[in-house]
Design a protein around this nucleic acid. Structure first.
Lengths: 164, 164
DNA sequence: ATTTTACGTCAACCATGTTGACATATATCG
DNA sequence: CGATATATGTCAACATGGTTGACGTAAAAT
C-alpha cells in the first residue's frame, strides 16, 4: 500500500526538488543578465562584450588563451568582440615579455569605467539578494554553485574568484 | 592610518564578495547548460527547444502567452522552435475550451521522453551539487537565487516552481 | 457593433556562436 | 641549427536564436 498522492516516495520528492533548483537557476540568470544587457545595448554592445570586459577587468594581464578557457568560446568568436573593444579604446593588448607570442589584455581607464557602469545594477542586484538572504544563505549559495561546476574545473574557478 | 593592504575596508570587501557571487553564477550556468546542449545537438535542436520542452513539461496545458512570459522572448522567436516541436510530434496544441483563442501546450509521450533524456545529466549535476553541499546550503542557494529574481516576478516564480 | 486580445506568419536584420583553412611570430625540442 | 609546436590573428561561410515591424484571423470583451 504505497501512498502515491501524499508524496511519501522519496525519489519523487527528490526529482521535484531538483527541478525546482533547475528552474530557480534559470529564473535568476534570466533577470541577472537583463540589467547589463539593457545598458550595453545603448553602447551598441552585447552580452559577449560584457563578459570580456568583466574577466579582463578581474584578471588584468590575462592572456587570450586564458580568457578563451574561461569563456569557453572559439577564438574567432572572441576576436569579434575583442577587436571592437580594442579599436574603440576599452581594452589594450600588450605583448608578453617572457613569451612574446602572448597578448596580455588590460582595460583602459575608459574600459574600467564602462565595466563599472554596466555591472553596477548587477552588483546591486546581488547585494540586495545577499542582504535579504543573510550570510548563512550566501554561504550555501556559493557552495552549491561551485558544486554545479565541472569537478575538474573547480580549482580553476576557485583560483579565479579568489584572485585579488 | 587606514590599512589598505589588509583589506579592512568593509566596502572593498563587499565589492569583492559581490564580484565573486557574480562569477560563480556565470561559471555554474556555463557548465549547467553544457550537458543538455550536447545531447540536443544530436537531435538537431538547441537550447531554446530545451527551454520550451522543460516549461511545457512542467506546466502541462500552459498557454502560449504564459510561456512567453516565462521565457521573456518574442512570440516570433518562440514560434520558430515551437512549430518545429509540434511538427515533429513532441508537443501538441489544444484549443482552449473556456477561451477558444488560447492554445494549450502539452508534451506528447515522445516529448516527455526527449525532455527526460535531455535534462537527465542536468538533474544529475544538481543532485550531485546538492548532495555535496548539504540541506542547509541548498536552502541558502534557493533563497539567494529567488532574491536575484526581479521583486515583482517572485510570486510568479514561486507559483511556477511549487506547482505540482 | 466595435474594440481588444490571443495567436500565427512573413520578412529582414542582428548578435554571437560554430567549423575550416591558412598565416605569422615565437618558443621549444631533438 | 632545423624541425616542430604553440599563441595569436584573420578570412569566409554558416547556424541558432534573438529582435522589430507589419499584417491577418478568430474569438472575447465592452
Amino acid at each position: 500500500m504505497v501512498d502515491v498522492k501524499s508524496g511519501v516516495n522519496p525519489l519523487f520528492l527528490r526529482e521535484e526538488e531538483l527541478r525546482q533548483g533547475i528552474e530557480l537557476l534559470f529564473y535568476a540568470y534570466r533577470d541577472f543578465t537583463s540589467d547589463p544587457d539593457a545598458i550595453l545595448a545603448q553602447h551598441g554592445y552585447g552580452r559577449a562584450h560584457h563578459r570580456a570586459l568583466h574577466f579582463i577587468g578581474r584578471n588584468p594581464g590575462i592572456s587570450v588563451a586564458e580568457l578563451l578557457a574561461i569563456l569557453r568560446i572559439t577564438k574567432q568568436s572572441l576576436s569579434r568582440v575583442l577587436s571592437q573593444l580594442v579599436t574603440e579604446g576599452y581594452v589594450i593588448q600588450k605583448q608578453g615579455t617572457r613569451d612574446r607570442r602572448q597578448r596580455h589584455l588590460f582595460l583602459t581607464e575608459k574600459g574600467v569605467e564602462l565595466e563599472r557602469q554596466v555591472s553596477e545594477p548587477q552588483r546591486a542586484r546581488v547585494a540586495r539578494a545577499y542582504r535579504e538572504a543573510g550570510a548563512e544563505a550566501v554561504e550555501g549559495y556559493r557552495k552549491v554553485l561551485l558544486g554545479l561546476v565541472n569537478e575538474e574545473d573547480r580549482p580553476a574557478v576557485l583560483r579565479s574568484i579568489k584572485r585579488r
